[in-house]
Design a protein around this nucleic acid. Structure first.
Lengths: 251, 251
DNA sequence: TATTTGTGATAGTATTACTATCATTTTCAA
DNA sequence: TTGAAAATGATAGTAATACTATCACAAATA
């Protein structure tokens, strides 16, 4: 079974035994696949073991040492392959970063769609969304080679670098940031559901998204910029954002 | 006359004629000097022509080509000096970026102090502050070698890279971000003047500061993330932020 | 089984990010 | 005004980065 909803493909695999062809009970799994813009890569990393290793190990390495010190050479050594092989998948490390963040936004949009599915009251929906944006994610077993928890932290610390470049307009023309914009659109329309007369739904949406991450980063690294330096708790960021958002739209 | 207020030094120079020693009328100038953390440089760039050239040309080059493609070699060529000479002033380009952003925050704090000087009503003060944060600055003649207008745009597009690094905590220990934190403190206390019971003054302050820049960047580069993509006008960002801030603190 | 496709191994280049040395010029203090 | 100290320029060199190219071999596929 395959379900496709806009950018996300949900596959229900029935793993079968290689020899007997009988379905294996415990290997029946729901598998999430985020549809990626193919202009982001030279060869689809999902299509091979090496590709999946590139994603998996790049997440680990960027998380560990930061994007600046991350190189394809180090990644190759980490995986046990060669630099040249990695260049067959990604043109350069910038594209890889954009790929990773785009994947994250796509994944998050699915989480939001999934977790606000049956909720009718828009304000409740919006609260769920904010919570998802702020919260540390657990590693999602539905997506084999991606560690969402690490990726979340990468998006916090390095995500902005994906678009804070001179090529942002070119990249945008190639729709590299579509998942981010889609997410922003989804959040914006929930805001409008809450208050159809609110004037800045998209700007408020991007503010929530950015601040969910920046306040977290500040809290942990430059605590004087926040009011949560002592507690360092996500729930405080959550309270702040809820207060900010709902006082704006319920005026 | 020299006036010193926390981080800023205001010098009133009476330029005198070299020969007659009579003060020259039209050359009487107010000169602003931002006090910089000396751990940011190896040799103080304010102390020499070459140093001032480094600041002036680095602002031009980073603005023109972006921080990623900016190198000390290109800067040296632009100035007409050598790479080695530049390394005598700054350890590396990261320190230079931190220097430039720190300078900007210091300068902005002075602008805020100056322009809210005689205002009594806190809300009016806060509005002024938001306006200063959002507005394109005119090149300030009081600061010879710094083009504040270009620097403002650099801070918008590259400013976050000053702290989004693995060394952020080390840099913070050396007080590299003090000007930013001070500014945030100033804005936070104006917020508290408006409403002493508001719970998140510092987080709201950093939100205003970051969003004043990010919404501007989005508006011009990723307009789908804002509600101002059509107009592309600063006054719209201003309205959004005013709405956001005052509905939060006047609840 | 022949052919395409992907990977590994190796090599090579231009640029970046520095460090080092030494001669020359400028500054400043006695 | 002179003489030492400090700053700059000129040049060279190194290790790492960010790639590109080539060829042999293995695996998948038709």
């Amino acid at each position: 079974m395959i379900v496709i909803l806009s950018q996300i493909i949900v596959k229900l695999f029935s793993f079968a035994d290689r020899n007997t062809q009988k379905p294996l009970k415990d290997m029946k799994k729901l598998q999430l696949q985020i549809k990626m813009n193919s202009a982001l890569f030279l060869r689809n990393p999902e299509s091979s073991e090496l590709g999946k290793n590139i994603i998996m190990h790049s997440i680990q390495l960027i998380h560990k040492n930061g994007f600046e010190s991350f190189t394809f050479k180090k990644l190759a050594e980490d995986i046990g392959t060669t630099e040249a092989s990695i260049y067959r998948y990604f043109e350069n490390k910038h594209k890889l970063l954009v790929y990773l963040t785009a994947w994250y936004w796509g994944w998050l949009e699915f989480q939001i769609a999934y977790s606000t599915n049956n909720i009718i009251v828009p304000a409740t929906k919006l609260k769920r969304v904010i919570k998802l944006l702020v919260s540390t994610v657990e590693d999602d077993e539905q997506t084999g080679y991606v560690n969402e928890s690490l990726l979340h932290q990468i998006v916090i610390a390095e995500g902005s670098k994906a678009y804070l470049t001179k090529q942002v307009s070119d990249d945008n023309k190639q729709h590299f940031f579509k998942p981010y914009k889609d997410l922003c659109g989804v959040v914006g329309s929930i805001i409008l559901e809450c208050n159809p007369r609110y004037k800045y739904p998209k700007s408020l949406a991007s503010t929530i998204i950015e601040m969910a991450h920046f306040q977290n980063f500040f809290m942990n690294n430059l605590p004087a910029l926040t009011d949560f330096g002592d507690s360092k708790e996500e729930k405080d960021v959550l309270s702040f954002l809820n207060d900010l958002v709902f006082s704006s739209i319920r005026k």
